[in-house]
Design a protein around this nucleic acid. Structure first.
Length: 268
DNA sequence: ATTGAGACCTGTCGGC
DNA sequence: TGCCGACAGGTCTCAA
């Protein structure tokens, strides 16, 4: 379930039950997820206080009282729930906080990740150091996007999935943003970048579309408290394009092994 | 250096 | 009903 908006919702869910609370117990039901847990994970965590619950792209970051950081990624199927004591299939990690709250990580496919990063080591952590700009931050704009796409021969959709170009989009919102911007997913990424000096309007449109799509997804989820299911193009193959006055029909194709949904009429 | 294919793992869904 | 393949919101590694 997790692209940037979903991870942000998880962050907001965890913050009130974890912030300024101590880890009283940590239960690992397996020795690995995508990777092995770091050595002494449990011992190093117990007794520490969570300073805050932050997010960088699709990563959750929990700075600890020691200066270390608990780094977590939800992978494809990871999720957290709080409060319920019960144990379900695929519950892999349980945190018992000093508030009494039970925080459980459930992840059927186990593509998730947990790591404990030494003080000062975040910026050089292999998962974090390679990340491109945070799409909702002011330093991500058309210019930054154009720069990142310069010389890239890969399809635009594939570029949006590359976390080094912009960090936080996944397969759904990459398709959605391209539809908002009216750009074809198959264009070479370089074609939105600066051709002869000035960044092209397409880069600015796309950067704005990315922000809009992510912000609306977060706002919607916060409002409705269950996941929004109405997308513009994602999972709508053969259905009519939702753009006003567009007569197109949504198509699906595979790019870099992932499904892309787009309108061949209004995305150029 | 960049790009694409395959790998990782489990669950669900549609077709026969 | 059961079996089988295709597919799923992510990322890593490897080889061209």
């Amino acid at each position: 379930m997790p692209e940037l908006p979903e991870v942000e919702m998880v962050r907001r869910h965890l913050a009130p039950v974890m912030e300024r609370r101590r880890f009283e117990d940590v239960i690992l039901r397996r020795r690995d997820l995508r990777e092995a847990f770091p050595r002494k994970f449990r011992e190093r965590l117990i007794g520490q206080t969570a300073v805050s619950v932050d997010r960088r792209a699709k990563y959750l970051l929990v700075p600890l009282s020691s200066g270390e950081t608990l780094l977590m990624h939800l992978g494809m199927s990871g999720d957290f729930r709080t409060g319920t004591g019960g144990s379900l299939r695929h519950d892999h990690v349980v945190f018992r906080m000093s508030s009494g709250a039970i925080v459980t990580f459930n992840d059927p496919r186990r593509f998730g990740l947990m790591d404990l990063v030494p003080a000062g080591g975040l910026a050089t952590h292999p998962a974090i150091s390679v990340l491109g700009p945070e799409p909702l931050s002011p330093d991500f704009d058309g210019d930054a996007l154009a720069r990142a796409c310069r010389g890239r021969r890969m399809p635009l959709k594939v570029a949006l999935l590359d976390q080094r170009i912009v960090a936080g989009l996944g397969n759904i919102y990459a398709s959605e943003a391209l539809h908002v911007a009216g750009l074809s997913p198959t264009r070479r990424a370089s074609t939105i970048a600066t051709g002869s000096g000035l960044p092209r309007p397409a880069a600015h449109r796309l950067a704005a579309a990315i922000k809009q799509v992510l912000e609306r997804a977060i706002a919607r989820a916060a409002r409705e408290n269950y996941r929004a299911s109405r997308f513009r193009v994602y999972d709508r193959e053969a259905e009519p394009c939702r753009r006003a006055r567009c007569t197109g029909v949504i198509r699906r194709r595979t790019q870099a092994g992932r499904s892309t949904f787009y309108c061949p009429v209004c995305q150029r």
